[in-house]
Amino acid sequence: MDFSIRPLSPAPPTPSGPQEIQALVESILEQDALPPIVQAGHPVLRQYAAPYDGQLDDATLLRLIDLMRRTMHEAPGVGLAAPQIGIPLQLAVLEDRFDVDPAAAATRERVPLDFLAILNPAYSALGPDTASFYEGCLSVRGYQAVVTRHRAVALEYLEPDGTPARAEFSGWQARIVQHETDHLHGALYLDRAETRSLAGNEEYMARWAQPGIDRAAAALGFPRS
């Protein structure tokens, strides 16, 4: 049985205006090194990011997307939202090309996800099915927790050139889409997590890194509804 999907509390909108966002992006792009990934407790992660509305010119936007992609790869991760590098803007990059254990890939419906940059994303469930798995976050280092998410979603977003787009995702790809979109709305995966499942990375790897979550649920006492 899957857990229920936990709703999110509304987040306050970012107080940053267009000029402040532009200046922040330019200062980050001027640095020689990749930007640090901000951690839980930073207010930018708890604000509803500003919808993209031309705050950056096309060349600057593409440079920012490239920087975010390189930062995601370096982490390494499968997604990165602009707030995770301190920019309160509704932009995220996604890509999953990792080789994973075939049993885990089958259980989690994890298949490669080609690179995608999304602006102003919003997702909706495709059907009632949910999936519950351990999940982590580059902005919550050192921990994993079980999160229940929609098994399949439709995503509406803007492409970097401003073209409206819609795509459907299922399995682990849908999880990545939901995780990164939640970031842009001021939420962390912990807001949707089963708190009794929370595990440090060492404990997770030693005890609960199976394809599914049944052993962890039985031992840690997850609520089943």
Rank of each mutant, 00 (worst) to 15 (best):
V78I: 15
L80M: 08
E95N: 09
G86S: 11
R69M: 15
A75V: 07
R63A: 15
D57I: 10
A49M: 06
T60P: 01
L62S: 14
R97K: 14
P51K: 02
M72F: 06
D57G: 11
P76H: 04
G41P: 05
D66C: 07
L62R: 15
P88H: 10
G77M: 00
I87Y: 03
P76C: 02
L91R: 00
Q55C: 06
A49V: 03
L67Y: 08
Q39M: 09
D57R: 10
A75H: 05
L80W: 05
L94I: 11
D57W: 08
P83Y: 01
L67C: 12
A82V: 04
T71E: 08
R63S: 14
L61C: 07
R70H: 13
E74F: 14
L94D: 00
H73W: 15
E74G: 10
G86F: 03
G54S: 07
Y48T: 15
D58A: 13
V93S: 03
A49Q: 05
Y52F: 14
A40F: 14
P76Q: 07
A49K: 02
L67D: 08
A92C: 04
L62A: 13
G77E: 02
I87G: 03
A82G: 08
D53H: 13
D96M: 03
P88Y: 07
R97N: 12
L94Q: 03
E95R: 08
R70T: 13
D53N: 14
A82W: 01
V93H: 02
R63V: 09
Y48F: 15
A40S: 14
Q84R: 08
L91P: 02
H42Q: 15
T71G: 08
G41V: 07
V38M: 11
R63Y: 09
P83E: 03
A81R: 00
